[in-house]
Design a protein around this nucleic acid. Structure first.
Length: 685
DNA sequence: TCAATCCGTATC
DNA sequence: ATACGGATTGAC
């Protein structure tokens, strides 16, 4: 290492530091050109786009006179930060600064377009706080990338909406008409349970028309593109062309930015879209609405993983606008809003429900799920077989067949009650062949588990081979057109009223013009077997969304589910009582300290990092830390990751988020590795 | 004694 | 991240 000529070399070539020092001495100190500052409000508060949690706050910059007009709140700028040029948003102009040092000037106003409105700027801060994330992450979700060419185009000026709300579509809901009236003048908040057979896009359109007709803005989010297309079509019919805009990440950058600009410029005040649209800068927001808030597509997969429903509710809370959660089923969160009195319920009376839908149940006990090949021929219980044959004479029939491969939790092999941890009510799962089952949350082993329902001692993981349902039905009922609609592959949006059997995976059910003659729900136990706290709620949601596509009872529509009569989710389905199931779920979660009755967060990372980090977490009173539990590596690099679950009483949720945010800021300041923090994780199990 | 290096802290 | 200041180490 120490070569004899190294000293010579050092003398010949002075070290770079010395060279720089001498160069600095040699030249006279750089005379900074005194930038002339703006006469009014020469200070701009700027949110800089740096990924570091401890720098996630506004910084003050000097506004050069040349940018006095351009550097308005909401515009994108380039600024010098820690020696490099970074992007930022001006969020405020001010006369003075608290900062004692010299202010750097704004380098450049990237575009004069004020894309970050005051409302949305506040919202991004609130969302970051709620989800213990950084505002710059939320800003990336909220403001689409700029597209310079598109920005040069003008947006057509706003047109007022003159359509009158048509009370007919909602007349059969007690309180429905009153809700529409309230939307014109006030800010009602409602959970709307949509009757099977009703076209939800028509109901939402009524709410949109009522609000927009009163001159206020509306924002609606839906889970996927098929929903979006349907709502788009209905709104186009009701409002006319150009009165609303569709915001979705799936259209190209130019189209997306064009739609966004139409909203931020106030040219369009009715916005529909998928989850990212929840941040749309709608002017004079009067109503936020969400269709089927229980759908996990509303969950943003990018940090800090906000849920569209929560974003919309935060907007309603902050701006005081109206809020509407509409769905066939009911999420635990929606029920919680009713229980706390934050929202009121709109639902159809029982008699009307009975006129619309009748769900039958047939057992599947005749087929032995464990001995697979022999059971294949008996895959369709005789009653289901009969229904298919009869109903297909009268029109299309929908068969919902869940795809296997869901993360499965353990269940009693006798009565199929999901097995839960006695310590924390988390789901039990198997981690290895020679180990007893253990809790997926707190890792407490459960040797000698006994079913609390039936006293059974056997556990099973409900896993089956691939269900070739369409094929089997084709064989069982020859001569019938059998079509498939599978999520992720071929999804059929709509079918006509010709006789056919449509086999669909949950969430991919086509809408039938005129309704289905029958809906058959197969393998209900598979949906219930998901290793997740929400398994029952989610199963009900998926069944309800399929069953709701059936014709009214009076027109011969029939629904048949194949499953166990004892299962609470199926009982709720048969009674068509999503509200009752949601109430039951909430009761259970209150007593078991589960969300939304409690606030839960997960923290994932290397075991050593977590062991060092968690003691420094300033947890609110009543907090519990469960874990660690090993997690499957997301990619090959991060082997050996573990996860902790932190839960606190609901009232301490804000404190928990703040503590986690501080933890991340401290770690980022100390250059420690990043931990994955998820508040209200999408999946818990 | 001076400079190179390390460490911690602030970044406007 | 990078830049800077103060403390620390090391070679004369």
């Amino acid at each position: 290492m120490t070569a004899p000529d190294e000293e010579e070399q050092l003398e010949l070539l002075p070290p770079p530091a010395r060279a720089r020092a001498e160069a600095r001495k040699a030249k006279p100190p750089k005379v900074r050109k005194p930038v002339e500052r703006a006469a009014v409000d020469p200070v701009a508060r700027v949110l800089v786009d740096v990924p570091l949690a401890h720098l996630d706050r506004p910084f003050d910059y000097a506004v050069p006179a040349t940018m006095a007009v351009g550097a308005q709140p909401g515009v994108r700028v380039k600024v010098r930060f820690a020696g490099q040029d970074v992007d930022g948003f001006v969020i405020e102009r001010a006369a003075t600064t608290e900062h004692t040092g010299r202010l750097q000037p704004i380098r450049r106003v990237v575009s004069p377009e004020p894309v970050l409105t005051a409302d949305v700027a506040a919202l991004t801060g609130a969302v970051a706080a709620r989800y213990a994330g950084t505002r710059s992450d939320v800003l990336r979700l909220a403001v689409p990338p700029r597209h310079a060419t598109t920005e040069k185009e003008s947006s057509d000026p706003a047109q007022s909406i003159e359509t009158v709300a048509d009370g007919d579509a909602v007349a059969h809901y007690p309180g429905g008409t009153a809700l529409l009236d309230d939307l014109r003048t006030g800010s009602p908040r409602a959970v709307w349970t949509v009757l099977p057979g009703d076209d939800w896009t028509e109901l939402l359109a009524e709410a949109v028309v009522a609000t927009a007709g009163a001159g206020r803005g509306v924002l609606v989010t839906v889970p996927d593109h098929r929903d979006l297309d349907r709502l788009d079509a209905t709104l186009t019919r009701r409002l006319g062309e150009g009165r609303h805009v569709v915001l979705t990440a799936e259209t190209g950058p130019a189209k997306r930015y064009r739609a966004f600009l139409a909203v931020s410029r106030g040219a369009v005040r009715v916005v529909i879209g998928t989850r990212a649209a929840a941040f749309a800068p709608v002017r004079d927001l009067g109503l936020v609405a969400i269709w089927d808030d229980g759908d996990d597509l509303h969950d943003e997969p990018r940090a800090p993983y906000p849920h569209a429903r929560e974003v919309l509710l935060m907007r309603a809370q902050e701006t005081g606008c109206a809020a509407l959660l509409a769905s066939h089923a009911r999420s635990a969160e929606a029920e919680y809003l009713l229980r706390t009195g934050w929202a009121t319920e709109v639902a159809a009376p029982r008699e009307l429900v009975r006129e619309r839908i009748s769900v039958g149940l047939t057992g599947d006990s005749e087929r032995d799920l464990r001995s697979d090949p022999a059971a294949r021929s008996a895959r369709l219980p005789s009653e289901a077989h009969q229904l298919l044959r009869d109903a297909v004479q009268h029109g299309p029939v929908l068969v919902q067949a869940p795809r296997v491969g869901y993360a499965t939790r353990l269940a009693c092999d006798h009565c199929r009650t999901p097995a839960v941890c006695t310590a924390c009510h988390g789901p039990l799962r198997l981690r290895g062949p020679a180990r007893p089952p253990e809790c997926a949350w707190c890792a407490t082993p459960a040797p000698g588990w006994t079913c609390p329902e039936c006293g059974g001692r056997g556990l099973r993981a409900p896993v089956l081979g691939d269900a070739r349902t369409a094929e089997e039905i084709g064989r069982a009922i020859p001569g019938v057109n059998v079509r498939q609609s599978s999520s992720g592959e071929r999804v059929i949006a709509e079918v006509d009223d010709k006789p056919a059997i449509i086999v669909a995976t949950p969430g991919a059910e086509p809408v039938a013009r005129g309704g289905y003659a029958a809906v058959l729900l197969l393998d209900t136990w598979l949906l219930l077997g998901r290793a997740d706290l929400r398994a029952t709620e989610e199963a009900m949601r998926r069944w309800a969304n399929a069953a709701a596509l059936v014709r009214p009872v009076a027109d011969g529509g029939r629904v048949l589910a194949v499953g166990e009569a004892a299962q609470p989710g199926l009982q709720a389905l048969i009674r068509w009582d999503p509200a009752g199931l949601a109430r039951r779920e909430i009761d259970e979660r209150v007593s078991a300290h589960l969300p939304p009755a409690s606030r839960v967060a997960t923290v994932t990372g290397e075991p050593d990092d977590l062991e060092a980090a968690l003691p420094t977490l300033e947890l609110p009173p009543g907090a519990e830390v469960l874990g660690p539990v090993p997690v499957e590596a997301r990619d090959a690099r991060d082997e050996e990751q573990v996860r902790y679950v932190v839960r606190v009483p609901r009232a301490a949720g804000t404190a928990l988020s703040a503590a986690l945010q501080r933890l991340q800021a401290q770690r980022s300041a100390r250059k420690l590795s990043h931990l994955r923090v998820e508040v209200d994780p999408a999946e818990l199990g």
